[in-house]
């Protein structure tokens, strides 16, 4: 349904939406166009001011994302499990093989040279003497040390 258009309402529309009546709300567009056609001079001042503003705004340049930003936005999206696996699969394998080999050699050497019983060293005797000097019962450990 086409609404009745008043001068005041048409001026409001021009103020808000600009000089181009095609930008006005659909429900009021036809009535606004009819009034503008019937009395073009009556709104010339408002239309001129609105047209100046439209020109000013229309001259604004587009803002486009840089290639770096676009790439970052795409990279920020989660990847599928397949892609994650393929990323892992594409990694060079020799560092992992090297690390495993080093671990195996280290374990072999460690196990081969490890003492099966703890050695009775002078440090044990020194510890025992210190404990005795502090008043602890060290008879058993002294005998064991000898």
């Amino acid at each position: 349904m086409t609404q009745k258009m008043t001068d005041a309402r048409l001026i409001e529309l021009i103020d808000a939406w600009g000089a181009d009546a095609n930008a006005y709300p659909v429900s009021e567009r036809a009535a606004a166009k009819a009034l503008l056609a019937a009395a073009p001079d009556r709104f010339s001042a408002e239309l001129r001011a609105a047209r100046d503003m439209d020109t000013l705004l229309g001259g604004m340049s587009d803002v486009m994302p840089s290639a770096a930003l676009t790439a970052a936005l795409i990279d920020s999206a989660p990847r599928t499990r397949t892609e994650r696996r393929s990323w892992f699969a594409s990694m060079p394998r020799w560092p992992a093989v090297g690390a495993l080999a080093s671990l195996a050699i280290g374990l072999a050497i460690g196990l081969g040279t490890a003492q099966t019983e703890p050695a009775n060293t002078n440090e044990d005797a020194v510890d025992t003497l210190i404990y005795a000097a502090l008043g602890f019962d060290t008879t058993y450990t002294l005998e064991a040390a000898q």
Binding site: V63, L73, I74, A77, R79, R81
Partner: peptide
């Protein structure tokens, strides 16, 4: 996680958002 769809959404909407 389809990259092509992700790229399409980014290309379509990032200019407006920015």
């Amino acid at each position: 996680g389809e990259r092509q769809a992700v790229s399409a959404l980014v290309n379509r909407y990032s200019p407006g958002v920015l």
